[in-house]
Simulated assay, not measured.
Amino acid sequence: MKLSQPRITPIGEDEWTDEQRESLEARSRAGHVYNVIGTMARHWEASKKFQVWAYHVMGDTSTLVPRERELLILRIGWQCQAEYEWGQHVIFGKEAGLTDEEIARIKAGPEADGWDPFDATLLRAADELHADAFISDATWAALSERYNTQQFMDVVFTVGQYNMVSMALNSFGVQLDDGVAGF
């Protein structure tokens, strides 16, 4: 973790408005609100708008299959050194079919031995977006072998979304949730 203590603490249940209570209780897991959600709730109006977009990227309206989406998210989380993001998405990545070996290899990047060529291309796209805010022609051409226009857009949207989330998590000092391993 970049910070050992939060700069912005998650909103406490005793601080919730009625609207927040309804929303946060619905999104809790076993009575626990994830630290990221509780922290974002400190800016409630922004949080409500953020949720709409976040649910596109992580939800059913994204055109990316979950495994490929998680490759992108884990790579940008690693590139941004966002330990909270990494820890949460290791869980989601495993649910989407990523193996422990693949998750470990994401840290090494697209040139690591053992990647399927298309998976390596996805990681390369995340790296290029992180470094240059641009997908190179060569990577675009490789993606075009399988992806349509909306999928191209969702690659950029996913990496961009989680780049921003990583900035927020790192800067706000969002701490790992109980039971979630970091790097």
Rank of each mutant, 00 (worst) to 15 (best):
I11P: 09
G12N: 07
G12H: 05
G12W: 03
E13Q: 09
E13K: 03
E13T: 01
D14T: 07
D14R: 10
E15M: 01
T17V: 04
T17P: 00
E19I: 10
E19P: 00
R21W: 00
R21S: 11
R21F: 05
E22C: 07
E22N: 07
E22W: 06
S23M: 08
S23H: 05
E25I: 01
E25H: 06
E25M: 02
R27F: 11
S28F: 00
R29L: 09
R29N: 13
A30E: 15
A30W: 13
G31I: 01
G31W: 02
G31K: 05
H32M: 09
V33P: 05
V33E: 12
V33S: 10
Y34K: 07
N35L: 05
N35F: 04
V36F: 14
T39K: 00
M40Q: 14
R42K: 12
R42M: 03
H43T: 05
H43G: 05
H43C: 05
H43L: 05
W44H: 00
W44Y: 08
E45K: 04
E45W: 00
E45M: 06
A46V: 10
A46Y: 02
A46P: 00
S47T: 08
S47G: 07
K49M: 02
K49N: 14
K49Q: 13
F50W: 15
F50G: 08
F50E: 14
F50K: 04
Q51Y: 06
Q51I: 03
V52E: 15
V52M: 08
V52F: 03
V52R: 09
W53A: 14
A54V: 02
A54R: 06
A54F: 10
Y55L: 14
Y55V: 06
Y55H: 13
V57P: 10
V57I: 13
V57A: 09
M58W: 12
M58P: 12
M58A: 15
M58G: 13
G59I: 08
D60T: 12
D60G: 13
S62H: 04
S62L: 02
S62M: 01
S62R: 07
S62I: 01
S62E: 11
T63M: 10
L64V: 04
L64K: 14
P66Y: 01
P66S: 02
R69M: 09
R69G: 11
R69S: 09
E70D: 15
E70I: 13
L72E: 14
L72P: 00
L72A: 03
L72S: 07
L72K: 13
